[in-house]
Write a protein that binds this DNA or RNA. Structure first.
Lengths: 252, 252
DNA sequence: AGCTCCTAAAGTGCATGCAATCTTGCACGC
DNA sequence: GCGTGCAAGATTGCATGCACTTTAGGAGCT
């Protein structure tokens, strides 16, 4: 079971082909900068977004280190960074596990994200440029393509739309908080999502962009509210479901 | 200059007399739990809130470790946690320094905090109990006392009012984000504050509580908006002031 | 005297090693 | 045959040690 981690990490290697640093080559930057951690981090995040890694799953630090041919201390740094972002939970003497948010926590995360996204939208409506709108529109097209082709990365793309929105607040602080919440929401969806009407979600993305273009923050927020109602509506947040999706209950 | 850190940390020992764990005794919990890090962390935060530690100041990790009689690795963990919260900045091969936010970053932090506090208020107005209001009112009395007595911890108390508000959103996720922003704002004020009309700020705290009691979120938000206008108004966020308060420009 | 270079001390960044703990597999007993 | 207890292997948590970088101080030169 534990080798699945390594396997999936390898799978990720072949999957996300467009990496930013092809000239990275050997992992020689022994001292000084440490982009290696960032690479591992990004890959793990991508694996989560595409739901190759599931909540509750163990992240063995020696296997993680071996998979990327880095010393164990490097792997641990990545895991601890993920811990600080609440993506990963440490159990004493047992190691790192992908966080398995409780139903209550899930409600709180979504509630917080709602408000932050609303705030973001009001800023975006003040600050978005024509170029920003083009980027958003193009991204939505990519989303639609991915969904119609049933591609695995469709979910990741849908999440990245919100990353783009966060970026367009032109407020890096708000952006970082929003991105953190978006990622935690992915985790939540991995646990509690029962049905996904994803296509209708991208159409809401489109409506949001329309409202932004009209600089109508109230309209944008209204659509976003519906958007969240749909997303939360697709979750089964009853408490007793929390352990229903326990790892041991997976379709072995 | 570097021994001031140890000195101030010791000063903190004598200063914050009411610590939660008197029975802690020896730091023997060699393995397992690690409350030691939490103690060090809390103390550093308190020192920042009371402005004994200033932005730009070096946090020497061996001296920090010696001051609390813990191995260096423990001290480093604390510093890295502070780094993740953007309280501390690491410079390669030079160590940890208290973050010195730029004027632009300061604006972004306050902007984000504004919106999050507004969101929090709307939740508080729905959820605050009578007991919550009592706690807030009592805290305001403590603030007034501290200010009238010119006590050093007055600033910390004023900040903690917002911590209490965050807590009363009954949303731990939102609470944590808010508290993080409050702390960064203290750092910002340490750098950029030019005049502090603190007493009028506590009266605004009082008005906010009144609005909460009336369950009038809009009114509460309006007061909070004025509150922030006053706080930001007491800052000099011109870019050229950024290096005016350089550490080396401190008295002496 | 002032400036520059050089050497020594201090301090960080990180990998590794060790002890404690957990887990897995097996043997023994029921 | 099934459950329990034990021992070996695996794995984590953490302190320490080492190599490298920065910094401070002084000697020598101009």
């Amino acid at each position: 079971m534990s080798l699945t981690l390594k396997a999936e990490l390898h799978e990720a290697d072949t999957m996300s082909r467009n990496e930013s640093s092809p000239s990275e080559g050997s992992i020689s930057p022994r001292r000084g900068k440490f982009p290696v951690e960032d690479i591992i981090y990004d890959r793990i995040i991508a694996l989560i977004m595409e739901k190759h890694l599931r909540p509750g799953q163990r992240l063995n630090e020696v296997k993680l280190a071996a998979a990327y041919d880095v010393p164990r201390s490097r792997a641990r740094r990545v895991l601890e960074r993920l811990k600080d972002e609440e993506i990963v939970t440490f159990e004493l003497n047992k190691g790192a596990f992908l966080s398995r948010p409780s139903a209550e926590e899930a409600r709180h995360v979504f509630e917080t994200r709602r408000h932050l996204e609303y705030a973001g939208l009001s800023l975006i409506c003040e600050r978005a440029t024509k170029g920003d709108l083009d980027v958003l529109r193009e991204h939505i097209l990519a989303e639609q393509r991915a969904f119609s082709e049933q591609r695995r990365d469709a979910n990741r793309l849908a999440g990245e739309f919100h990353d783009l929105l966060a970026q367009m607040t032109k407020n890096p602080i708000l952006e970082k908080l929003l991105i953190g919440l978006v990622r935690r929401c992915v985790l939540i969806q991995s646990v509690y999502e029962v049905e996904t009407n994803s296509l209708c979600l991208t159409s809401e993305h489109s409506q949001i962009v329309d409202a932004i273009e009209a600089k109508d923050a109230q309209a944008a927020i209204k659509v976003m509210a519906q958007h969240f109602d749909h997303i939360v509506g697709s979750l089964d947040l009853r408490e007793d479901r929390e352990r229903a999706t326990d790892v041991y209950a997976l379709p072995n």
